[in-house]
Design a protein around this nucleic acid. Structure first.
Lengths: 337, 337
DNA sequence: CTGAAAGCGCTTACAG
DNA sequence: CTGAAAGCGCTTACAG
C-alpha cells in the first residue's frame, strides 16, 4: 500500500506540507535545492498525487461528464473520440455514460455527474423533456453543451446540425432521380428530437413535390443493423414497393442493403438506398453507400474546445452552433428507369 | 450557484451535520420525523450530494478507470458497453480513455486513473512492457484487470481468449478449403501482443500443413477499413496472388472485401476472405463475412463483475480467464476450385 | 436517536 | 523562499 501523502513526503524531506504542494504545482516558487530534495523523496517513495483531494480543496474539478446514447452505434464514436483527445491533452478526465435514449438513465447519469462535481458536461443527443434539469445545471454554474441536436430552446447551448434540412435534402435528391415512391426507415422519432426532425424533413420534401405521404412507406425502428434489414424486407414485400429507400441512419441503411442483397435485388438498379451519418463503414459497403455526411468529428472537437474554454473562463457564453451537412454521392442511388 | 452543503442543510433543519449525513446514507438510523424535515430541506434548497468529498472522507472511491485502444474500432464497443451497464447498475462511474496503442498515452492515462484514486481499473488490450507499472498498481492494492489479452505473466489477471489458437483455427479452416496460398492482413503485431499471437497462429497452421511461409503474403497495417482496402489491393496485384486472405480484424476484412469488389473480383469465387472479431457489421456485409467470433460482450461483463466483486471484498483474487472463440462460417470463403 | 470532533489529502492566503 | 493554519464537504467512531 503506497499510502504516501504530501504530509509524509514533507516529513521525510524536512520541509513543510506547503512546500511539497508547491514543488508539485508551482515549482518556480521553490528553491531548486529544496525542490530537488522533495522530488527525489517523492520518486523514492512512489508518491502518487491525490487529484481528488486537490479538486476538493481547490473547489474546482478537472473532470468532464459525457453522455452518449449508445456506444453500440459507431456514429457517436467519432465525436466522442475528438472530445477525449482534446480533454486528455488539456488535462481533463472524462466520465462517460450511455443513456440508451432512456430518460431515467440519462437523468441518473446527469445526477451522478453533478454529484461528482464535474467541471462541465457534454450531452450527446439528449432526451426530450430534460430542459428543466439542464436549466438547473446552468443556474448552478455548470457549463453544459448539447451536441448532435439543434435545440429550439434559445437559453440552451448546442453544437449540432440541421436534421430537418439534411433529411429534406436527401429526400429531394432521391426525388431529383425521379423517384416518387420513397420508403423511409427511421429511428425512434417518437423518443428522439433529432430523429423527429428527419421525419419532418422527409415529409416536407414530399409535400414540396406534391407527392402524397404514405404511412405504409415509413417504418420506425431502433437504429441497428438488424432492424434495418427487417424493415427493408418488409418494404420490399409491400404490394406497391418503393423504388428508393431512405434509411435515416447508416446502421439502418447497411442493414437495408444487406436485405436487398439477400432478396436478390440489385442496388441501385432495382432499388436505391440512401443513408444518413456517413459512418466509416458507409464508404466500404458494396456498393459504397450514398449518404448524408455529418461533421461528427468537428462537432466533438468544437464541443470540447468550447467547454474547456468555458471552464477556464468560469462562464459559458451561449452557443448555438449549427454546422453544415452534405450529401456524399456514392453508388447506392440511381435514376429511376 | 446552488452551493448548498450538508452543513447548510443541517443549520436550516436545526440538526447536526452528522444527522444530515445519516439521513442520506443510513436513513434507518434517523428518527422518521427528523429525517423528513431534513429531506424536505434538501429538496427545497436543491441540495446536491458531493460524492467526491464523501469518497475522500471514506477513503474509498466509486469510480472505475477503463482504457480502450480506440473508440474508432467498434470491436471494443461491445465489451465497453457491458462494463458500463454493470458499473452503472452497481453505482460506479466510469472514467474512460483511449490509448491509441501508444505506451506513453497509456501510461499517462493509468497515472491519471491512479491520481484520481479509482477503485479499480480495466485495461483493454494493454501495450507490451507496462507490466512493471501494473505490478505497482497491484502492490498499491488497486484491483486491475487486463481484458482482450491472454497474458503470459502469471501474477497479472486477465480475461481474454487465445489469439494464437483462434488465428490458427481460421487458417486451418482456409487450408481445409484447399487453399495453400493464403494472404494475411494483420494489425501492428510489432506493437500489440495479441496481434503478434495471431501472426504466430497463422504461421503455426501453415507449418503444420507444410506450407512455406511467404513474407510477401503478410501485410502489417493499422486495423482500419482504409488500410484493409489498401492491403488487399496490394495482395491482388502480386505476381502470384493469394487465393484466400485472412484479415485478422474485421475492419481489415471489410476493407479487403471492398477492394475485391472494386477490382472486380468475386468473393468467394475468385478469392476467399476471412475476418476476425465478428463485429456487428460482419454479418451484414455482402456477402456476409466468415469470421472468428470473439466473446466480446462476455469479456466485458465478466470483467466488470469480477472487478466490482474485488472492490467490494477489498482484495482481488488472481484471474486467468480464457474464453472460447469459434469460427462463424458465412459466405466469404469457399473451396479452391 | 443525535451531536461534537477528528480526520480524509490537499490548497492557499497570510506572515515572515 | 518557506511555514502555520484554516478550509474544501464529507464520514465515522465516540459519547451521550
Amino acid at each position: 500500500m503506497s499510502q504516501m501523502t504530501m504530509q509524509e513526503i514533507a516529513r521525510l524531506s524536512g520541509v513543510s506540507l506547503a512546500t511539497v504542494s508547491r514543488t508539485i504545482k508551482n515549482p518556480q516558487l521553490v528553491r531548486p535545492k529544496t525542490r530537488e530534495r522533495v522530488l527525489s523523496m517523492m520518486a523514492e517513495h512512489n508518491y502518487v498525487y491525490h487529484a481528488t483531494a486537490a479538486d476538493l480543496s481547490r473547489r474546482k474539478s478537472s473532470v468532464i461528464g459525457v453522455t452518449i446514447p449508445t456506444t453500440r452505434n459507431p456514429v457517436f464514436a467519432s465525436s466522442s473520440l475528438a472530445i477525449q483527445e482534446i480533454a486528455q491533452k488539456k488535462g481533463f478526465s472524462i466520465i462517460l455514460g450511455n443513456t440508451h435514449h432512456d430518460a431515467a438513465i440519462e437523468r441518473q447519469l446527469l445526477q451522478s455527474f453533478q454529484e461528482r462535481h464535474v467541471a462541465g458536461m457534454i450531452l450527446t443527443g439528449f432526451t426530450l423533456h430534460q430542459e428543466a434539469y439542464l436549466n438547473n445545471l446552468a443556474r448552478a454554474g455548470i457549463p453544459c453543451l448539447v451536441i448532435w441536436e439543434k435545440l429550439d430552446e434559445p437559453w440552451l447551448s448546442y453544437i449540432g446540425f440541421d436534421n430537418f434540412k439534411a433529411a429534406r435534402s436527401m429526400t429531394e435528391y432521391l426525388i431529383s432521380l425521379k423517384h416518387r415512391r420513397i420508403g423511409l426507415i427511421i429511428g425512434p422519432f417518437s423518443k428522439i428530437g433529432r430523429v423527429k426532425k428527419r421525419l419532418d424533413g422527409y415529409r416536407s420534401a414530399l409535400q414540396d413535390h406534391n407527392i402524397a405521404f404514405d404511412p405504409d412507406l415509413v417504418i420506425e425502428k431502433e437504429p441497428l443493423l438488424y432492424d434495418g434489414k427487417e424493415a427493408m424486407t418488409r418494404l420490399m414485400f409491400l404490394p406497391k414497393r418503393p423504388t428508393a429507400v431512405f434509411a435515416a441512419s447508416d446502421m439502418l441503411a447497411i442493414g437495408a442493403l444487406s436485405a436487398a442483397w439477400d432478396l436478390g435485388f440489385n442496388v441501385p438498379q432495382d432499388v436505391s438506398i440512401a443513408g444518413f451519418d456517413d459512418i466509416d463503414f458507409a464508404a466500404y459497403c458494396s456498393p459504397p453507400m450514398t449518404t448524408v455526411r455529418v461533421p461528427s468529428h468537428e462537432i466533438g472537437r468544437l464541443a470540447a474546445k468550447y467547454l474547456i474554454e468555458a471552464i477556464e473562463q468560469g462562464s459559458m457564453p451561449l452557443r448555438h452552433h449549427c454546422l453544415d451537412t452534405d450529401i456524399v454521392v456514392r453508388n447506392t442511388c440511381s435514376e429511376l428507369r
